[in-house]
Design a protein around this nucleic acid. Structure first.
Length: 324
DNA sequence: TTGTGTTTTATTGCCTCC
DNA sequence: GGAGGCAATAAAACACAA
């Protein structure tokens, strides 16, 4: 059996027969019961609460460890003894030894020196082997734990992404609504200007018949000049409120609407041409959706519009696809 | 039976703590 | 400085398909 498989595998040997025999004994759960048989607590408090491996397993009152039993089994299998003492060969722990160690690990995954010696003694192993087993077991536990954490994080990420996408859609819908309402507002304003203009024309037609001083008070004169200057502003195309060529118009969205701090902010009360009632209604109906964060407060420099990257550059998403 | 991928045992080197 | 933990890695043992 040059470098052959001695323990376990398909061509099971004497050892597996032994193991089968051993497995017919009490379940290992009972290994950690302290004293009383009806106690359900499997607390492992070092040497005090630890039932020895052979105490439960053997049933023969023997103090010999499992390993000792393997070495000195009555059937006198010499090749097994040889195998167990092969220098430089790795020896796999038996299923029972592993189960015992697992139980011990479940209770406490750190190994105090005292417990290590006791476990080693009970299992017929070197304390160093027990230490190494715990070391490797902790590494495996950590890997599994990381995998679970990763799954949880990925699920959270997927939820957030879905939320973000739905919010983005809703945002688009609201933007479209804003545009429609803006157009309506513009239309209304134009209608109002036209009616004012026709009033002015009527007035100017009447004026030449009477001397100005006679026919119009000072207040009327100032009103006329005010209207005229306003008309001039609009006719010269200086209405930058909804001018899509103005620097405040970006991406089909009137950024002037979004920046109340801007001097051209269309809803600033001082500059409004609407009557108080109109203004109130207007504010009630339109203002709430316009409470957007100031653009300068959010850094979207690396973020494409309407993306759901949460401000992270795309390459950072490699975090979500890491592997172990 | 064999090649190959996975799991388990063990080593090494570095780090931290007492 | 020694003991113990951890990450990385080697290598034996094992599982399994072809």
């Amino acid at each position: 059996m040059a470098g052959g498989r001695v323990n376990g595998g398909r061509n099971s040997s004497v050892l597996s027969a032994l193991l089968q025999n051993q497995r017919s004994s009490e379940p290992l759960d009972s290994l950690f019961l302290s004293g009383s048989s009806n106690s359900s607590s499997a607390s492992f408090l070092g040497s005090r609460s630890m039932l020895s491996f052979e105490d439960v397993r053997g049933g023969s009152g023997s103090n010999r460890s499992l390993f000792y039993q393997y070495e000195h089994e009555d059937n006198g299998e010499d090749d097994l003894g040889e195998y167990l003492h092969q220098p430089g060969k790795k020896r796999r722990l038996t299923a029972d030894q592993v189960q015992f160690l697992e139980k011990s690990f479940d209770v406490e995954n750190k190994l105090e020196p005292e417990r290590k010696v006791l476990l080693a003694k009970d299992l017929g192993l070197q304390p160093r082997q027990v230490a190494i087993w715990f070391q490797n077991r902790r590494a495996r536990w950590k890997t599994k734990h990381l995998e679970k954490d990763y799954e949880v994080l990925q699920a959270n990420y997927n939820n957030l992404k879905a939320n973000c996408e739905s919010l983005s859609k809703e945002n688009d819908k609201l933007k479209a609504e804003v545009l429609i309402l803006s157009d309506k507002l513009q239309l209304k304003e134009k209608e109002r200007e036209n009616s004012e203009l026709s009033d002015t024309n009527k007035l100017s037609q009447e004026l030449p018949q009477k001397p100005i001083a006679d026919s119009a008070s000072e207040g009327e004169v100032s009103k006329v000049s005010a209207v005229a200057s306003k008309q001039e502003d609009h006719s010269s195309g200086r209405s930058d409120i909804f001018d899509s060529d103005s620097p405040h118009y970006t991406d089909g969205v009137h950024s002037s609407l979004l920046e109340p701090g801007d001097s051209s902010y269309v809803f600033e009360p001082e500059q409004s041409d609407l009557s108080q009632d109109e203004e109130d209604n207007f504010s009630k109906s339109l203002l709430p959706p316009y409470i957007f964060p100031k653009l300068e407060d959010v850094d979207y420099s690396d973020t494409p519009a309407n993306s759901c990257n949460f401000g992270f550059p795309m390459e950072d998403h490699a975090f979500w696809s890491w592997s172990y």
